[in-house]
């Protein structure tokens, strides 16, 4: 079980690295890479908590951590998307004659 968790974490780390290195070069929208990295980080945190730290054996505590983690990720994701929306150039208003 531990080794499976470890390989899962390695795979998620590789996906995060790929998102950070490749997505900007592929012309993807600015929010895609940080959002993808946040999602992978969320999954990694869940694996670490449940498997490495053994919270899978204590579902009530695991749920508590899961809720707090979800709230944190929502806040982080919201801030990421808000920054990207603010960075987009404003569409020029049509000329008024």
């Amino acid at each position: 079980m531990l080794t499976k968790a470890w390989t899962t974490l390695l795979a998620l780390t590789a996906l995060s690295a790929a998102a950070a290195l490749l997505l900007p070069g592929l012309g993807a929208a600015g929010w895609t890479a940080p959002t993808a990295i946040l999602l992978f980080a969320w999954l990694k945190a869940r694996v670490v908590l449940s498997r490495y730290l053994g919270l899978a054996a204590v579902p009530s505590v695991a749920r508590g951590f899961g809720v707090v983690l979800a709230l944190f990720m929502l806040a982080a994701g919201g801030l990421t998307l808000a920054a990207d929306a603010g960075a987009r150039p404003a569409v020029a208003a049509p000329a008024q004659n």
Partner: peptide, 14 residues
């Protein structure tokens, strides 16, 4: 380098 460090930490935790 950040990714390599993550692999090191993940393996150390394992």
């Amino acid at each position: 380098s950040a990714s390599i460090n993550t692999v090191v930490l993940v393996t150390s935790g394992w």
